[in-house]
């Protein structure tokens, strides 16, 4: 184990800005991509449903 206490871990030997800046932005971007995808899927499903409902009405 490299770290004797949490402070040392978060300090990253003086490179905290760079290391945590990389980790933070990576996590943020990946999370955002997943959120956008889920939203896109919801919108697409709603669109298909609406279209299908309209089609069913027309054929009556």
């Amino acid at each position: 184990m490299n770290w004797t206490n949490p402070n040392e871990f978060f300090a990253m030997g003086g490179y905290a800005t760079y290391v945590w800046g990389s980790v933070g932005v990576t996590v943020l971007v990946l999370y955002a991509e997943c959120l956008f995808l889920l939203k896109r899927r919801k919108t697409a499903l709603a669109h298909v449903k609406r279209d299908a409902a309209l089609g069913a009405e027309d054929s009556k």
Binding site: L37, R41, L45, V48, A52, G55
Partner: peptide, 26 residues
């Protein structure tokens, strides 16, 4: 992620086909 996105693209492009309308999500 790519599989998830391709599913969205299929829904968006093929929304008039019978098989998409028969999906259980719809």
């Amino acid at each position: 992620v790519a599989l998830m996105r391709v599913r969205c693209i299929i829904l968006e492009r093929e929304y008039r086909t019978a098989w998409v309308n028969d999906l259980k999500e719809i």
